[in-house]
Amino acid sequence: MVELRDPQPLRWIEEPSGQPITRCFQCYKCSSGCPVAGAMDILPHQIVRFVHLGLEEELLKCRAIWLCTACHTCKARCPNGIDISAINDTLKAAVLARGLRPALPAVADFHRQFLASVEKHGRVHELGMMVAYKLKTGNYLQDVPLGMRMLARGKFKLLPDPIRGQKEVRTLFHRARGEQR
């Protein structure tokens, strides 16, 4: 059970997510249409409610924000125009920025390795990204047969294809992380 402590809405989520969080009247439409609701520990409508109630620790520790596929079905159907996936993005960024442990580390590692490849080459090099992800997670055996079949059909480019504007792309990354350049 969640214990309520002097509820204070998490106002800091509103600006970066760009979502009108206080408009939510808990109609459950988002949770009804969410394709991954069945695997979530906190349902989409509850995520918004937790924001209202100031349950910051619970939100930063939950699996749901990492399971969100960003399919935007919630946003498409919300009568108040709230995009819960944008709230989830803001929460995920906060978990990593504060150095907390993501509830689903594999998902966080995937995003980080994908983006590391883009930052390095300007384009994602899928094969290199997959190898880096496996080294990071130690998940060597998962999907090996599928990967071999894809490799056999020439689905992977063996070498990266860096762009000329690599430095520009790296600058965009530094700025997005709030680093000085």
């Binding site: 803001t90 995920k92 995937f110 995003h111 980080r112 994908f114 983006l115 384009r123 994602v124 997005a176």
Partner: peptide, 15 residues
């Protein structure tokens, strides 16, 4: 000289 759009990861962890 196009660059990657970032796909889902592009908005997942950096604003």
């Amino acid at each position: 000289d196009w660059n990657c759009c970032g796909a889902t990861s592009g908005h997942a962890i950096y604003r």
